[in-house]
Write a protein that binds this DNA or RNA. Structure first.
Length: 289
DNA sequence: GTGTTTGTTATCAA
DNA sequence: CTTGATAACAAACA
């Protein structure tokens, strides 16, 4: 479940190795994964290179070295972007790490692959086929961002006042509000549960019932947890791997997510698992009110 | 065969 | 009209 820290980790890693390299070949194994059609997709991208790599919420935005063209990649639930560095051309050379050699791509879940001029390869793997690669122009990109994404929780655009207003005007559960990408861009099930635990708030509470002090705790907890997860290169709970095929280490730091039935590290009571906003939801009945 | 997993959108209900 | 809740999608696993 790639959320902000996982997508940002992939973005940072890929930016180091991909920018400025010409795309020499593309393969589309799953036509429904790309937009527009696979033929157009390949034709437009071949010969171009990435000029920049940005992120909005959980959406990766690759800027191409051609005006008015962007490649959007969304990993959704099970998407992976795995980069294999080029083989050394020197005789007898073998630059593949053991990690890389032990895995062979493309595999049955590879939906798209890109080959670069230096021999490096990027694989988009996605077991569930929810993720996508989409080519858009500037205007479309701006519309997508304007219509779907609220403030970035690690930017100055994320303010306590703004969060407070959004919570006050909603009768949904606080969990549903935090999952809403228009309210905060980049949170998903894991970090919503973790943030609510850190703020001492039960996920089922209606958003407009939060007291100012609780809003304040929540506002501080969200960026704190996201930054901590970023330091650990994100959370691997099920499928997530970074661009080198490595797991994220924040999994060990999770306080409530995936810990239903286990003891709360803080108070020793049993973590409960319920369903809120249609999602598996974990909380400590003692620490969260 | 059944239930569960979630990011996002579509659809339905109030 | 607005708001919120829910279904649907995809595929694999326990």
């Amino acid at each position: 479940m790639p959320e902000l820290p996982e997508v940002e980790t992939v973005r940072r890693d890929l930016a180091k190795v991909l920018l400025g390299k010409k795309i020499t070949a593309l393969k589309v194994f799953a036509p429904t994964t790309v937009k527009p059609s696979a033929a157009t997709f390949i034709k437009k991208l071949k010969g171009l290179s990435f000029a920049d790599l940005n992120r909005r919420g959980k959406l990766l935005i690759f800027e191409l070295n051609q005006p008015d063209l962007f490649l959007l990649i969304h990993l959704k639930m099970t998407g992976q972007l795995i980069y294999l560095s080029p083989k050394t051309a020197i005789t007898g050379g073998h630059s593949f790490s053991q990690e890389e050699r032990s895995r062979s791509f493309p595999n049955q879940h590879t939906r798209v692959s890109l080959t670069f001029e230096d021999g490096g390869r990027l694989f988009f793997n996605d077991l569930r086929k929810f993720g996508y690669l989409r080519l858009v122009d500037t205007k479309t990109l701006e519309q997508i961002i304007a219509n779907n994404y609220g403030p970035e929780p690690l930017d100055k655009s994320f303010t306590q006042k703004g969060l407070s207003l959004n919570l006050k005007k909603s009768q949904r559960s606080v969990k549903a509000v935090l999952l809403d990408q228009k309210i905060i861009a980049g949170l998903g099930n894991i970090y919503v549960d973790e943030s609510l635990f850190a703020a001492g708030i039960r996920p089922i509470r209606t958003a407009n019932s939060l007291k100012p002090v609780e809003v304040s705790q929540l506002f501080k907890a969200i960026p704190r947890i996201l930054k901590k997860s970023l330091r650990y290169r994100g959370t691997t709970f099920r499928n997530y791997l970074d661009s080198s095929g490595q797991k994220g280490n924040f999994s060990e730091k999770l306080q409530v997510y995936g810990r239903g039935g286990q003891k709360c590290y803080q108070c020793g009571n049993t973590i409960e698992k319920i369903r809120v906003a249609g999602r598996g939801t974990h909380y400590c009945p003692q620490c969260q009110k």
